[in-house]
């Protein structure tokens, strides 16, 4: 199997709002290796989130090609895309997007239930272990909307990690958190990246956060302006 976890080739996305074509992403190409810890930076509206949604199979490109874990995603059915999202990718959004009807621990093991796992003691203990990593054991049985903002975001991170995905896509994951919680979240990302070998692609508009990642992809007006990292130092 290739070392490239994500291969993006000439990816473009054009929205046709009100009949007027609006390019959101133009001819973006790069690849992301296994266990890489990378960020995508750019101004608001530059196309960062569009890129993340395309890689996360939440949106479909107008043109270009996307290969995830060696699998070309172009011919995938709706269900095929859903399955790949569930097993291969963990999402963390700026807004936690927890399910308020379920408890913290139920939110965490929901991706495993979607994958088809039964709610066994093993599954619950795995969810507890994930919560422990994020220091959330105390709130496991609380309703998702009964915990603080910082805790909600950490629950969302635990949920993204539950199926032990090879790739975590995070869109402004600390956008709603204070400095202390922000630092804590990035420490956690690093820890998971180091211990589990999970690749991270983090969208942020904060250059300080981007500096803490190993590789920075800068998007401007929908184009990949800069790809700086250990293998591609800034020009």
């Amino acid at each position: 199997m290739s070392d490239a976890l994500v291969v993006v080739s000439g990816l473009s996305k054009v929205y046709a709002d009100g009949g007027l074509p609006t390019p959101a992403l133009t001819d973006v190409s790069f690849s992301l290796g296994r266990s890489e810890f990378a960020s995508v930076i750019g101004r608001s509206g530059s196309g960062k989130s569009t890129l993340l949604n395309l890689i996360g199979l939440l949106d479909t490109p107008t043109s270009g090609n996307l290969v995830l874990n060696g699998q070309d995603t172009a011919g995938l059915s709706h269900d095929g895309r859903a399955k790949l999202r569930n097993t291969f990718i963990g999402f963390i959004f700026q807004f936690h997007h927890l399910l308020p009807e379920f408890s913290v621990i139920e939110n965490v093991y929901m991706p495993a239930l979607i994958r088809g796992e039964a709610q066994t003691p093993d599954l619950v203990s795995r969810a507890h272990a994930t919560l422990e990593t994020l220091d959330l054991c105390d709130v496991a049985d609380k309703k998702a909307n009964e915990v603080s903002g910082g805790q909600k975001q950490r629950v969302a991170i635990a949920r993204a990690l539950m199926n032990r995905p090879e790739l975590v896509l995070a869109d402004e994951p600390t956008g709603n958190l204070d400095t202390e919680n922000t630092e804590h979240v990035y420490e956690l990302f690093r820890k998971v990246n180091r211990e589990w070998g999970t690749a991270f692609l983090i969208v942020t508009h904060d250059p300080e956060i981007a500096r803490q990642t190993d590789r920075v992809l800068e998007i401007s007006d929908g184009r990949l302006l800069r790809d700086a990292g250990p293998d591609n130092p800034p020009r």
Binding site: L58, A82, K83, R85, H97, L98, L99, M110, I114, R115
Partner: peptide
């Protein structure tokens, strides 16, 4: 949200 997590 459930669909984003992979619910068909």
């Amino acid at each position: 949200i459930l669909k984003a997590m992979g619910l068909t």
